[in-house]
Design a protein around this nucleic acid. Structure first.
Lengths: 235, 235
DNA sequence: ACCTGAACACCGTTCAAGT
DNA sequence: ACCTGAACACCGTTCAAGT
């Protein structure tokens, strides 16, 4: 048995087993997600893709939540930030910017859900925050108001993506949605008079129309809100 | 070996093994959640608690998501709906109502997250929607506006709970939050001038103050928004 | 109709041991 | 310092077989 013969097969069949790096791991994770969906991007499955054991990944990634946050930040590179520098009404441009963020999340609903839990903190997320702040500043919002408004706007967009887009992928989630619409439609006028009176209105409008309305309401709202009390700090 | 001796031990030691019912299953699930947290309310663990096998639960519960939605609806029975009937400014009462909903969610952050994915459709959730609609109607919102506004308000409240309260429980989530605050504080003025300029303002304010501000902005916003275009319907 | 044992196909994370 | 095998302690869901 020569040294040559003991060379592991995998070394010979694969072109090269690249050294593990954080960037390489995240890159492979993004590929895997595009190919099979975020549900498949588990530590074990990803390790398999990288031709190693799951334990090896923990040198570069703290845990699954952090891995997903890193994937999201990578994807946020695709958000179109140009509305922040363009001409035209700042409200329209802010809506376009948030719409672009939403579009990225819509492609990967599970990621939007994880963004609510493990907030991204990478460069691309900061670029997005920066662009929103620039537009709010243009709109004349005072600094403290803008600081709180950016949170409100991004939370609304992220949670809209998390909620709406899950339905389109998971059959189970669709069942829950159907149950809700049925419950609203069949509401007993005695117990739920307002719901019964509104009828189909509660479920009216396309997703886009409701979203655009939501953005308008939010932007008007943060303009109308009083200057925030910024004493104290988030725990 | 007599028939008596072959009686399984569990039958003799436990007072009685109650027959499985949906209500009984959900009730046990709620107890289990209060005792050990929602993470522990798995089909397997719950079956164990009910002294049966996981497969038995599928007769009464479609899947884990539906189980969690049912648990949430049960808990929503604790939401204080009296502000809808009380005297006083309708905005204040709406804020109190949403605050009570938030408080319930805050006690069980994981449940808030699941509510974004599998929306509850039980009686208690309908009661909440009804109460919000009643207050919006008092505030003079046109029916179509109220129909969309209730979604916006509940989505904001639910996602705030999902986001904020996760941090307090999961150590990992706290890490992510720390990473975000550090990233904001250390933003490079060259690339992120607005973030750098705002400095601590971005993270200012207590959770309560930010929440109250958010409710105000939302209420002002839905009042200011134009009548929605209700043609078409949610897919 | 309801209930179940057993199986299928997976998970995250840790840790002692190696290089 | 980096990497790993192996283990620990779990998952959701299905299905054929029983009562």
């Amino acid at each position: 048995m020569t040294a040559h013969a003991r060379e592991p097969r995998s070394r010979r069949e694969r072109p090269a087993k690249p050294a593990l790096t954080r960037a390489g791991i995240i890159g492979t994770a993004v590929e895997l997600m595009r190919a099979e969906g975020l549900e498949r991007v588990t530590m074990r499955r990803l390790a398999q893709e990288l031709d190693t054991g799951p334990a090896s990944l923990y040198v570069y990634v703290r845990n699954t939540a952090e891995l997903h946050a890193a994937i999201l930040d990578q994807l946020l590179g695709a958000v179109d930030l140009t509305p922040a520098q363009a001409d035209g009404d700042w409200r329209d441009r802010l809506t376009r910017l948030l719409g672009s963020y939403l579009a990225v999340l819509f492609e990967h609903p599970a990621l939007a859900r994880s963004a609510l839990v493990a907030r991204p903190s990478g460069e691309h997320y900061l670029d997005l925050v920066e662009a929103v702040l620039a537009l709010l500043g243009e709109g004349g919002l005072a600094p403290a108001g803008a600081a709180w408004a950016v949170d409100l706007l991004l939370l609304f967009t992220t949670s809209t993506a998390a909620e709406q887009s899950t339905r389109r992928q998971a059959a189970d989630a669709q069942d829950e949605w159907d149950a809700l619409t049925a419950a609203l439609r069949e509401a007993a006028p005695a117990r739920h008079p307002h719901i019964a009176a509104l009828g189909g209105l509660l479920l009216s409008g396309t997703g886009e129309a409701r979203l655009a309305w939501g953005f308008q309401a939010l932007i008007s709202g943060v303009l109308a809100a009083p200057a925030p009390d910024t004493s104290g700090s988030t725990p």
